[in-house]
Design a binder for these strands. Sequence first.
DNA 1: ATATGTGAAGACGTTCACAGCA
DNA 2: TGCTGTGAACGTCTTCACATAT
Lengths: 223, 223
Amino acid sequence: MMAESPRRGVPEATVGRLPGYLRALTELSETGRDSVSSDELAEKTGVRGAQVRKDLSILGSYGVRGVGYDVTRLSDQIAAELGLSQVRPVVIVGIGNLGRALASYSGLATRGFRVVGLVDNDPAVIGSVVDGLVVRPVSALDTFTELPDPVAVGVIATPTAAAQEVADLLVRHGVRSILSFAPGVLRVPADVHVRAVDLATELQILAFHEHQRELADEGQDAG
Amino acid sequence: MMAESPRRGVPEATVGRLPGYLRALTELSETGRDSVSSDELAEKTGVRGAQVRKDLSILGSYGVRGVGYDVTRLSDQIAAELGLSQVRPVVIVGIGNLGRALASYSGLATRGFRVVGLVDNDPAVIGSVVDGLVVRPVSALDTFTELPDPVAVGVIATPTAAAQEVADLLVRHGVRSILSFAPGVLRVPADVHVRAVDLATELQILAFHEHQRELADEGQDAG
DNA sequence: ATATGTGAAGACGTTCACAGCA
DNA sequence: TGCTGTGAACGTCTTCACATAT
């Protein structure tokens, strides 16, 4: 009745920090370091040492007491946990400035992904070459989703008005992970994962804190 | 010694949802609706009704029992809470594809912000016009930070290697809110707020869940 | 001596369930 | 009757503190 594997269900909060650890470990590896302590890893990723240890212990990781963690081994383990042992193909829909920025972002290739498709519906853009790939019409989505290794992640970089339609299209083509840069909630089946990044939301959160400081300053001046 | 206002310290989780509520309310307002229930607002923002009510009660909001919330009034109240009663000036550093995408994103103007400065260090880019603004050299940052209404938020859209340097520069110019699109942790004084958006991190989190489904599928086939 | 791994405590966030009001 | 506002229950995440291992 119970699971027998060393760890069951990595907490979402931990999952959110794994990419940061992985990035720090990659940097350490490039500078030739082969061991790192939880406190140093914490310092490099902006969390506390105890948090790092808890996170890594959830993965069933083996550090060495009195020494630290083996950089290469831990790196491999986190990559495996994130499913990055295989390179994951990505398709970008909407090749405006944002789509272009994403297409040419080298951080993707170095961190487990490969952009295999660029799609747009603007005839003026279709056929142009961006970062070595020809932009294809939306109708060509099959090309990328019917491969033996089908596209895993769809990125929506279209105007807001088209986002839901594109999401529906991606879902119909079997894509189960979507990263959207459009504001608003996308309606998708329960087995599809969506992450949304919204610039205005981020700025508004910053504005809130800015505003709080203003209130605090006023309070001090006039209190 | 103690605050007397109706609410002290809005929880960070609530702050993170306020922009979503605001967006939904703006849409409702545009379609002429003047009242909305917590359940409807919840449905439009992807949270639960009880969550909406809890969040709004923290703001000291007045809904009407049996009826719902007044769209305009609630909208104004959330905008005020987020410090959006005044338009906040934004400067974007790094005018590549990403910087351009941000500069021409209409969602900023409609949601409380105004891009007042574009800055780059590439002579080939300096002097060009993007979305009605001339790109200025980094040395011109003073132009935007020494106004009577100084720049509130700096956006870092540079390559990774330049991000920390730009952050230092922004801080030196008095900017206390930074939105960074570069991977990695920026080192800033404690009174400066940083929010980081990293594409690769988002994709890796999606990859994790994709991977989990693969494991689940295998387990079902071979279990 | 040094740094991991982890139970226990504490802080934080969400959901329930219903009293209270229109 | 309908929907808000909220204490209380519940669940999740973080931090502490120290036993444990090298």
